[in-house]
Design a protein around this nucleic acid. Structure first.
Length: 285
DNA sequence: TAAGATAAGAGGGACAT
DNA sequence: ATGTCAGTCTTATCTTA
């Protein structure tokens, strides 16, 4: 059993079955450099986070007209403090950028929760969105579009297997629009993303399709051979992964239809068939 | 019913004009 | 900037076992 923290999933190392998704960070909040420190430090308050518009560091001037030692303020002082309060309130959302971020991040929370991604991914998405905002990429486009693209980018960056389709669905936007925004981010911000590893998709599909661990191991072997045979480049990783699993089901005598696997992977039967054909050709099955 | 075949269409990358 | 080309994936429909 292994915890994959960035992905927020716990899965079995021998069969790849995903036991639990969206696991909360289990480590201590602080790194400790000695045992004494470890004992002394405790979790205090919210950790700072770039996914909160002011990074969780807001301080507001209270409404009690008392000074630090609890004495009432003089009249002159009162009006002065009142002015400060006004500015204090204004500075909390002092720019349109801040307002934008506030809205975006509440949306981000919603999407992250629905996608069941870890806090690390959410943080990353927030960071990317901030950058996008700074570079004026949001102007003239919808906040949701760029935000969803940031979230997708974060998933790619952290190698969390979420498809464009997954993200588009929870954001109620069209897949092609999401793809467009995502490419915009990559281009304008010179980002480089790792290629999606079909292996990473395997456990996801397998657990959704309810195939046995044995079959899944078989599928992984097939997938490995397929990669060695270089027939996977440029193909949809979910498609590759799904068809490998389909082949494994046949070999292991597990009665799964193309429809079942296709549904679990979020691709069409035709795609399965095409990959399946190439797989047979390359591996001589 | 499941699997295979075929065709049309979308969207984007590469490359030339 | 605009057009073409090759390649991928999707949707839809028909055929085959």
């Amino acid at each position: 059993m292994v915890t994959d923290n960035p992905r927020g999933e716990i899965y079995c190392t021998s069969c790849g079955f995903v036991v639990k998704e969206n696991v909360i960070e289990t480590g201590p909040e602080w790194r400790s450099f000695s045992n004494e420190e470890k004992d002394e430090r405790s979790r205090t308050g919210l950790p700072t986070s770039v996914a909160i518009h002011d990074m969780g560091l807001a301080t507001i001037i209270g409404s009690e007209n008392k000074d630090a030692s609890g004495r009432s303020l003089t009249g002159a002082m009162k009006s002065s403090v009142e002015r400060m309060r006004t500015w204090d309130r204004r500075s909390q959302v002092h720019e349109s950028q801040d307002r934008n971020l506030k809205q975006a991040f509440s949306e981000l929370r919603r999407l992250s929760e629905k996608l069941a991604v870890s806090e690390a991914v959410t943080e990353r998405a927030a960071y990317i969105y901030r950058k996008a905002l700074e570079r004026n990429l949001v102007r003239g486009r919808s906040i949701t579009a760029i935000l969803a693209a940031s979230l997708y980018a974060a998933c790619r960056d952290r190698e969390v297997p979420r498809t464009l389709k997954d993200v588009a669905a929870v954001g109620f936007i069209k897949k092609k629009d999401l793809a467009r925004s995502y490419r915009l981010l990559l281009k304008e911000m010179d980002m480089q993303m790792p290629v999606v590893d079909p292996m990473k998709c395997m456990s996801k599909i397998a657990s959704r399709a309810n195939v046995s661990g044995k079959t899944q191991r078989r599928a992984r072997e097939i997938l490995q051979k397929a990669e060695q045979a270089r027939i996977s480049a440029g193909k949809d990783p979910m498609g590759i992964s799904a068809s490998a699993l389909y082949v494994a089901c046949i070999l292991e005598g597990e009665n799964m239809t193309q429809r079942d696997i296709a549904d679990a992977a979020g691709v069409t039967e035709v795609t399965i068939r095409n990959r399946y054909k190439g797989l047979r050709l390359a591996l001589g099955i």
